[in-house]
C-alpha cells in the first residue's frame, strides 16, 4: 500500500515551525509534549477510526496502535509532511488493518461512492417556486461557538449529529472541523480529490447546521 504521508507535495519549507519544535521535543523524550499531543488528538482520532472499524473499542485499539507506531517511527520521521498528516495516515492504516482482521474492510473510496446523499441542503418546501425563502432561517441568538456551547444540550446535539453522518462525511468533517486540518491535509490523509472532499464537507456541515437549527427552534 502506498504511504499516505508521501502523497503530500508540500516542500519541507512549508512545514510550520511549531511542528518542528514539537518534533524536537518529542525526539528529546519530552513526555509532557507527548501526553499533550495524545490528548489533543484523541477525540478526533477515535471518531475517524470508527469510520472504518466496527465499534468504539476497536477504534480505541487502532488509536493506541497508532501511537505505538508513532513512537517507533519518530526517530525516522522526515518533516516533509505535517506531523498531523503522518499520524493520521498511520491511523487510517491501523484502522483499516483492524477492520480487515474483523472481516469488514471497506476502502475509503467505496465509502465515498456509497455516499448517496443527494438530499437538498435545505428542504425544498422551505423555498417558494422561484427559489426564494418561504420559511427563512431564523437568526440565532447564540451566534458564537462559545455562546452556542454554553447552551445546555448543544454540544450533545452536535456530537449526535456528527455520529449520525454517513461514514465518508463523518471522516471529512472530523478531520476538517474537529481536528482542524486543511482541505489539502484531508485529501492526503483520506486519498480523495479536493472536489470529493468539498462535496462531503458541504453535506456534513449542512446536516450539522440543520441539527442545530432544529435544536434551537425547540428551545
Amino acid at each position: 500500500m502506498r504511504a499516505y504521508y508521501a502523497v503530500t507535495t508540500r516542500p519541507p519549507s512549508s512545514t510550520p515551525d511549531d511542528d518542528l519544535a514539537l518534533l524536537a521535543r518529542l525526539r528529546g523524550g519530552d513526555a509532557q509534549a507527548f501526553a499533550t499531543l495524545v490528548d489533543r488528538h484523541h477525540g478526533p482520532m477515535v471518531r475517524l477510526a470508527q469510520v472504518f472499524v466496527r465499534d468504539r473499542a476497536a477504534a480505541e485499539d487502532a488509536v493506541q496502535e497508532t501511537w505505538i507506531g508513532v513512537i517507533a517511527g519518530l526517530p525516522r520521521f522526515e518533516p516533509r509532511a505535517r506531523l498531523k498528516t503522518w499520524i493520521y495516515g498511520i491511523l487510517v492504516n491501523q484502522a483499516r488493518s483492524r477492520a480487515r482482521r474483523d472481516g469488514r474492510d471497506v476502502p475509503f473510496s467505496a465509502l465515498v461512492e456509497a455516499d448517496g446523499d443527494v438530499a437538498a441542503a435545505v428542504d425544498a418546501a422551505r423555498f417558494k417556486a422561484g427559489g426564494h425563502w418561504a420559511s427563512p432561517p431564523a437568526d440565532w441568538v447564540q451566534d458564537t461557538p462559545e455562546s452556542l456551547l454554553a447552551t445546555r444540550g448543544a454540544a450533545e446535539v452536535i456530537g449526535a449529529a456528527i455520529d449520525a453522518l454517513p461514514p465518508a462525511q463523518r471522516a471529512v468533517l472530523t478531520l476538517r472541523d474537529l481536528e482542524g486540518a486543511t482541505s489539502e491535509e484531508v485529501c492526503n490523509i483520506l486519498e480523495i480529490s479536493e472536489i470529493n472532499q468539498r462535496v462531503l464537507l458541504h453535506r456534513a456541515r449542512t446536516r450539522v447546521r440543520a441539527a442545530l437549527e432544529q435544536f434551537l427552534q425547540k428551545k
Binding site: V46, P136, W140, A154, I158, I162, D177
Partner: peptide, 21 residues
C-alpha cells in the same frame, strides 16, 4: 443568516470539549 450558521456550525464543532485519552 444561513451562511453565518454554516460557519458557526463548523467553528463550534472545532470547539467541542476535548475528549482526553
Amino acid at each position: 443568516a444561513y451562511l453565518r450558521q454554516m460557519r458557526l456550525a463548523a467553528q463550534t464543532v472545532g470547539q467541542l470539549p476535548p475528549e482526553p485519552m
